[in-house]
Design a binder for these strands. Structure first.
Lengths: 340, 340
DNA sequence: AAAATTTACGAAATCGGTTTCGTGTTGACA
DNA sequence: TGTCAACACGAAACCGATTTCGTAAATTTT
């Protein structure tokens, strides 16, 4: 193991004190020009880099942001990470990424470990199991320890911290309204169980659009997917109803619905129009390409770090939790009719 | 800011020395039962957690693994990250994730920052620009500093470190051979420019399969995509040739090819069979679903950390770089004929 | 009862930096 | 020539832990 060069090494080698070396390397006026030059040349030659751990300990900050996601093999979340990393880097921060895998226990543990001082703050999207349990005490503890925390996408009101969300109700409304506008009469909804907050909100938007358009809502047209079961089989039930439009709260559900529709010999979009959620690769490349709600994950990530870094760097200020709503766009593609 | 509790606080509060506290918390036999109980109870009550930075500095290890990827919004890379994180966590490590965005300069900087002691080792897949430049000195410096390094997927021989790769030649061979076997006579290849090592290797496999099968290779059937230009237009050129099979070295190229084929009114797989690379969501959900080479990213990630942690924890051992080849599977779906 | 050992704890060094506060030397000014 | 400021540098504290070593008191051994 090649010995890493430290301030102490330099000091000994050059016959000066460590304080002199430290000051010389920061170009302090306290140090004479000759000494400075000598030290800088030496440090440069041996490619001296200050040990970041020592600095972190001294400064009581790590310049690291912890990010906990439910999963990563997922277009939306990976886009958010991109946004987080890009802006964090700009600001001189790095990110430590962990996954809860939708698991409550792992979320608790990860949170506990990361709050030991390894990060200056945290950005989290809550695990499904936690949303189901409704046990948020691990987050509340964090807030009480005054560790900066930003929640995004999957958030809950019980936790007093900054939050970034997509306008899920609005998006659900926008999608459903579009289906109505192009002439769909019986619109199915493929959503998540109620405890998944985003699913519930998108459903609200769906219902709002129907009511506003005087279309009767029908609970038989709403399927709540249990991901532990076979997704396709559950969606197939929806096709037993007489439907001419589908709003799915994510890409996978939409893709599955499209597949089933094709298998049943339905023409998309003429017999049935489909709108998904998340503007991922599936929506873009499947055929027909899928009309979808684009969530702007990159912007969400960026906003999340922005809020977080602001919190971290202005700790003295009185803190009032902010909630930022990112609007989402309907991206019209081939899976929806152009008019009635 | 609520004051974090430290060993010093406990010591002062309980009228003992910091060493006593430290030992008591580790249940050392050196400390009397009463004192121990008192300290442990106190620490427990105030939810004391040792400052990890202090420990890292003292132990000269961070239990953090740096991961540098070219991009993340990509099925293969996000799968690899999953694998890395899963096994790293099992072993008590965390991962710091950075992205080079295929950019040489950012790769150099990131590498430099992370090698300041913030991580115990690094897992990297090289940026495209770096591969093009052929300037690997930043990696070579790293190796000379004896910082454990594992390269995966995009690797180069010039760097003496552990490597994990997919059997790209074999995979290219397997895919092409399959096309030959089902009766394709003129097989197009959609690949990357030569400097992208994986693309070049997959091409070798393609050529090998053709030669072995006494099919004439034809450079007009090979398209090297320049990602700075319009991908679809480039692929369209291939369709000016008379082809009945396509092997694309990634999912996006395959999806684009399929789209063009459909636009031209070709029936897939009867008129033309298509095989892609990376078993992502596009391949799975497009219709027809795409026959592809599954790369087992999760396993690659896991193997990479395994090698790395082994390196980190057995630094004394003489080091001989290993290269692990992960075999890949042909996953047959609907975009290829079942027989000739 | 004296010697040896064990028990229970504290002082201080260490990890690698930064920073405050002194201090000896030099030069300028009265 | 005496005084004072400026200059150039070092000693030591500090960040928060661990760990070695030393030692007083208690206990056991001889």
């Amino acid at each position: 193991m090649k010995q890493k060069i430290t301030i102490k090494t330099i000091a000994k080698e050059l016959g000066v004190s460590t304080s002199t070396v430290s000051k010389a390397l920061k170009d302090s006026h306290e140090i004479g020009k000759e000494t400075k030059d000598k030290i800088q040349a030496f440090a440069n030659h041996y490619n001296y880099k200050p040990n970041s751990l020592a600095l972190q300990l001294r400064n009581q900050k790590t310049k690291v942001i912890g990010v906990i996601l439910p999963k990563i093999v997922h277009h939306f979340f990976s886009t958010v990470i991109m946004g987080i990393e890009a802006y964090a880097n700009e600001k001189g921060y790095h990110i430590m990424v962990c996954f809860s895998n939708e698991d409550y226990q792992k979320e608790v543990e990860t949170l506990s470990v990361l709050s030991n001082g390894s990060v200056d703050g945290l950005i989290v999207s809550i695990a499904n199991e936690t949303l189901e349990n409704k046990d948020f005490s691990h987050f509340i503890d964090l807030v009480e320890e005054d560790i900066p925390l930003v929640l995004f996408d999957r958030v809950v009101d019980d936790i007093l911290c900054d939050k970034i969300v997509v306008d899920d109700v609005g998006a659900g409304y926008k999608a459903t309204k579009h289906l109505v506008d192009i002439g769909c009469k019986r619109i199915g909804l493929i959503t998540t169980p109620d405890h998944v907050s985003v699913g519930a909100l998108r459903r609200l938007g769906y219902e709002k659009a129907l009511i506003e358009s005087y279309v009767k809502t029908d609970s038989k047209l709403i399927i709540k997917i249990d991901e532990k079961q076979d997704i396709k089989k559950q969606i197939e039930q929806l096709f037993e109803q007489n439907i001419d439009g589908i709003f799915a709260v994510n890409e996978i559900y939409a893709a599955n619905a499209m597949r089933i529709a094709k298998e049943k010999g339905l023409n998309i979009p003429n017999d049935i129009s489909i709108i998904g959620f998340t503007d991922g690769l599936i929506s873009e490349y499947s055929s027909p390409s899928i009309t979808t709600i684009a969530q702007h994950g990159f912007i969400m990530g960026r906003q999340a770090v922005e809020l977080l870094i602001d919190r971290i760097e202005n700790e003295t200020e009185v803190f009032t939790p902010k909630k930022i709503v990112i609007s989402s766009d309907l991206k019209i593609r081939e899976s929806t009719k152009t008019s009635s």
